[in-house]
Every structure is written in C-alpha cells, then in structure tokens.
C-alpha cells in the first residue's frame, strides 16, 4: 500500500450556476498526490484551480468523478465522518487577513482544531505554544489578536493551524500571492522545511509557474477547467510542451535584463503563434 497515492482525483467535473448561466468549472480532471509530495496546480483566474481545492476540501460539490483519499472515496461521506477527515486534510488560504477570525486570539484559533478532537483549551495550549515556535513565532504571543500581525506573520499562523493536528495533506490555495515578494520566499522555505520534517503532502495552488518552481516536485497546468499538461517541476518551469504552459511561463518576467529580453522574444513568438 505504500506506493498507492495519498490522494487520487479521477475524472472530476464540477459546474457552477444552473440553467442558462451554467458554467463548467472543472472538466474531467484527474491527478494524484503521493505522501510527502508537493504537487503544483497552476492556472489563471477562471481556470478552476481554486475550485478543485474546494472540491477536495468538501467546500464544493462535484457533478461527476471521484476523489479518493487514502484509498477511500470522500465526496459523499456523512457529515460526522467528513468532519473526522479534518485531522488528515487541511487548508491554507490566500488571504492572510480574512482567513483568521478577527474576534479570537491566535491561541484560540490554533486550539480550535484540537478542541474538535475533544481537547480542552488549557490542554491544547501547550501544543499551540509548540506549534507557534515551529513557525518561528514567539510562544508568548498566544493571547494576541490577528489584527496585531503583519501579512507574513498571519500566514505563519495559518500554517500553524493547518499543521497542528499533523495532517497528511494540506491544500495551499495561493498561500503567498498576497504577500510581499521578499516575504514570499521565507514562507515558501518554511513550507519546504515543515514538509521535510513532517512528511505532509501539499497541493500547492498558484497562478505563477515561477513561484511553484521552488516548492513543487510536480506541476499540473489547468486551463479552462482542464489539465493541459502535467510533469516534473524542473521541466514544467523551464521547458513545458503545451503552448499554453509555454505562454504562461514566458509571460512572467524574470529579473535579468538579457534573459528577460530573450524571454520576451520567445513570448512574442508564442503569442503570434496563438493568435
């Protein structure tokens, strides 16, 4: 069983709206994530990348296909069973300001998942303190409110919340795109470090192939609800095959004038080729 994927998405389709405004957000999507692996899911707005994350997390209902986690189809689990899955399946959202309840201290926010598991707040506090240190925040800040933290610090808190019950898979929905560029790299490195320590798997959703390069073992490119290409991180972020993946890669500028001039030339080629 060791080689069986941790998560398998097979032929998943999902619609938004109904009747005339029906919109196919996911169109027969298949992918798999192995234990301890980071799979990048890259696409632009409207590609369905966040929808796929939501479907895996049980926040959106598919119209067909299956989502198999640890050998078990998880889409139509009864609510109590689904809630038990929370121990293994966690999330980090994009918005560092909206993803933490403004009315609770970070101690209470971090303890909440543990309390669902039946722990009292006083018991949970020790674990919370440890977790804060794991994400490089001082333990003493446990009684502060989210509004007292910067974007990067909040994202660390969100990571701590996701990790506190030692899950096996975390869906990271654009976890760094709302942060300053210099902060982004420290958060990415923290995620890599924690993955090495705990063996957790990531589904890393992003709009930017360049960001994905550092953290993802494999990358899938999503376009209009369909996966157009999947492959190893190195190849996908240097020389992908599909024209759309190419366009996506060439479109993000690189901080080197000569290299960027070459990339722009390449992009102009791809663009005229597309048009």
């Amino acid at each position: 069983m060791a080689d069986a994927p941790l998560l398998e998405v097979n032929d998943l389709s999902l619609d938004y709206g109904r009747g005339k405004s029906l919109f196919r957000a996911l169109d027969h999507v298949s992918l798999e994530i192995h234990r301890g692996e980071c799979l990048g899911l890259v696409g632009e707005s409207g590609s369905g990348k966040s929808t796929l994350g939501k479907a895996i997390l049980g926040l959106a209902q598919s119209v067909g296909g299956e989502i198999v986690f640890d050998g078990r189809e998880i889409q139509r689990l009864p609510p109590p069973m689904r809630r038990r899955l929370a121990k293994d399946l966690q999330v980090i959202f994009q918005d560092p300001y909206g993803s933490l309840s403004p009315a609770m201290t970070i101690g209470r926010i971090l303890a909440e998942p543990l309390r669902v598991g039946g722990m009292r707040y006083e018991q949970a506090k020790t674990a919370v303190g440890e977790m804060l240190e794991r994400v490089s925040l001082p333990r003493e800040w446990i009684d502060r409110y989210p509004s007292e933290f910067s974007g990067g610090q909040r994202q660390r808190i969100a990571i701590a919340r996701a990790l506190i019950r030692q899950p096996r898979l975390i869906v990271c929905d654009e976890p760094v795109s709302a942060l300053d560029v210099t902060t982004q790299s420290t958060i990415i490195d923290l995620l890599i470090e924690l993955q090495r320590e705990t063996g957790v798997a990531y589904l890393f959703i992003s709009h930017d192939l360049a960001v994905v390069r550092r953290i993802c073992h494999r990358v899938a490119v999503l376009f209009k609800g369909q996966i157009v290409e999947q492959g190893g991180g190195e190849k996908m972020t240097t020389n992908p095959d599909h024209p759309y993946s190419k366009r996506l890669l060439m479109a993000s500028p690189v901080a080197d004038p000569t290299e960027q001039a070459r990339r722009r030339e390449a992009w102009l080629q791809v663009r005229t080729g597309q048009a």
């Binding site: 997390l57 049980g58 966690q90 998942p113």
Partner: peptide
C-alpha cells in the same frame, strides 16, 4: 471555510 475544513 477554514473552520469547516478544520471539522467544526
């Protein structure tokens, strides 16, 4: 959404 994912 985060709370729902956390099993609450």
């Amino acid at each position: 959404d985060a709370a729902r994912v956390a099993g609450i």
